[in-house]
Design a protein around this nucleic acid. Structure first.
Lengths: 207, 207, 207, 207
DNA sequence: AATGAATGAGCCTTCATTCAT
DNA sequence: CATGAATGAAGGCTCATTCAT
């Protein structure tokens, strides 16, 4: 939402004839294609994939990739932000509902996402490029929702008193890594068990 | 005969103290230096660091790195194995003692190591190069000790019945990632808290 | 549609003359330049020349060489095949004519080529990389024509009965080496004399 | 003979005690070993072989190779000269006999040598390093004998009037290449046939 | 005099980025 | 705006040569 692309104010556009509009639609389609392709390839092969490969698979020239994403880092961040935004949308929906255990739903969902698509993991882990610096708002948005849901669960006695939202986020990143390490990508039951153990860790020690 | 150590007229030698007996020691020192430098740089910057950079920082030529470690993978594996071997040694010591809670000690130690030096994490995660293939014995040894200590703890009722050694190892890898994600490398207390939450997850739900 | 040639408003185009239609022509020119430079340098210095040197002398970057010829072997083969194809064309033309002595014309021509440009020699010698494997058709074509012309000459009593096409080819390679060894590259008369001696060897002992 | 190694005048040697003599014998044995190994490897693999490989196979350290042959070129030239010297010896023996056809014997022998051991070929071809510059005397010696034997054969009407010793040498180099090209190294009969054709070329056209 | 570790220039190749068309 | 050719700075690795022992 607050992260729209830098768009040259379509209303005021000096060239409002048909062809320009068509091109812009094309451009957007290309951008989308590159983004999607990059997401897949980053997920499958890691950050090592070359931009040429991404361009080839997206069916565009390398120059086109560059026009939309001026550097590899920019593309990587765009992919990450894209994924985060989806999570934020889910978090918002859960926050709108009244379930006190919604944090667990959200966290499970995050873990599952990460298990399937390790780019989310990378996105959150932000190991190589700094997502928090580049797109502070989305990250903040997500943390905000997690905080809200966490507080709600705490009030209901469903999570330990001493655990913070930051730590919970870190644990999600940890769950990704754990699932990945156990090669449990493809075994949802096993991935769920590992994620479950970590979630159990944030539950209160029962009396 | 012709291969005797070339002793430059021992009587007249200007430096007759112990330090003179180097050479092969020098080679070993270089190897050690490269290994240590690589450990640091891999930990700090990831596998992306160039061998030339490692050589430069170790104060040797690129060829020297190559002499000791004929490929980047070989160097990486050497670093990983080196670290694993230390863990195995610790695990052995703990197994020799009788503490039923020794798993927790070992796991805490592993997590702390990983927090300080994410190469251990990489070593365990073995994402890029396959450690399990290259040095199966060390990895097996470690798993063996973990299994032993885990069983002992289970017998004492200190861990859940349903958790396996593989999962525990995966959780350690997850803890590394979580600690790293929380930027808690440098904050031992925080790292300990995060690690603690994960360890709590493998404890039995108390009665 | 979206992939049409981007014609920058043809009506207003400042340069509407023929010369503007380059680009792909540029690429082809570069390819040609690299090929020619490689031919020369391989001929002068052997396969030892570095690709960087070839690039430098062709006035392009090393990457450009790589784009057109993905490996040194590929470049070498391209050079060789290029030369062979010219020979095959000549052989075809000679085969089309009716001269029973055409073999000698062809062989002389091959020797002269080799004298000027020892890459042909390398191409035929195929010492380092295997041309016969990589481009079997061209090599086969050439041998085919030689066989045909040789048979024709034999029928006319112009060559010994016992000499085969393979041996003739080998002798051509030998002539290259002989001419090269005598430093007769630049002295056509001398090169011709040496080549002539070898050709005389395949003529029947007269009676 | 005139090409003996630079030997520090044994008679005047300041250190004439036993150990020095023993060591010198060792050194000579090493030199011989390296030379022989280099000969083999150059012949089998070409100039591409590394000095380390030569050292390893000769059972000495790389430093030892360097002590005897200060550069790769020096080693290569030493190998070549060594081979040439053997040819010169043979040529001298043939010149001492009275056979007018001795040139053919010598040339056949040279071709056979080259077929078996392409270093001789390289030595004569002197493609990469310039043998004629580095060791003019041996080359001159050989050419001298060839000239002598050639003249004698010419007088006896066994060779064409117009062929020179230089050309004959070049043809020998050509024969090496031809034999090599025909893959006839291992097929002496075939190699002989190819060599024979070339020799026939220098015979007078029979009346 | 031999050893073999160290050096470092250079090789082939890759790839993010720029730019002419 | 898209294209894709060109660029050129690394990267990993090799190897002739030097040098401490």
């Amino acid at each position: 939402m607050s992260h729209q692309l830098p768009e040259p104010i379509p209303a005021e556009s000096p060239a409002a004839h048909g062809t320009a509009r068509a091109l812009r639609a094309d451009a957007r389609r290309n951008r989308e294609r590159v983004l999607r392709t990059a997401q897949q390839l980053f997920a499958q092969e890691g950050l090592g994939v070359s931009l040429d490969e991404i361009a080839r698979r997206a069916g565009v020239g390398p120059g086109t990739v560059h026009r939309h994403f001026p550097s590899k880092e920019a593309l990587y961040l765009a992919v990450s932000i894209d994924q985060l935004e989806r999570l934020v949308a889910e978090a918002a929906a859960l926050a709108a509902g009244g379930d006190p255990a919604a944090v667990f739903t959200l966290l499970s969902r995050m873990m599952a996402d990460g298990a399937e698509n390790s780019t989310v993991k990378s996105a959150l882990t932000a190991a190589e490029f700094d997502l928090r610096t580049a797109a502070p708002e989305v990250a903040t948005d997500l943390t905000g929702y997690v905080t809200e849901l966490l507080d709600r669960a705490r009030t209901a006695g469903l999570v330990r008193d001493d655990v913070t939202a930051d730590e919970v986020m870190a644990l999600v990143a940890g769950a990704f890594a754990a699932i990945r390490h156990a090669d449990a990508h493809a075994d949802p039951a096993r991935a769920a068990r590992i994620g479950g153990i970590i979630l159990d860790g944030i539950r209160p020690r029962s009396r």
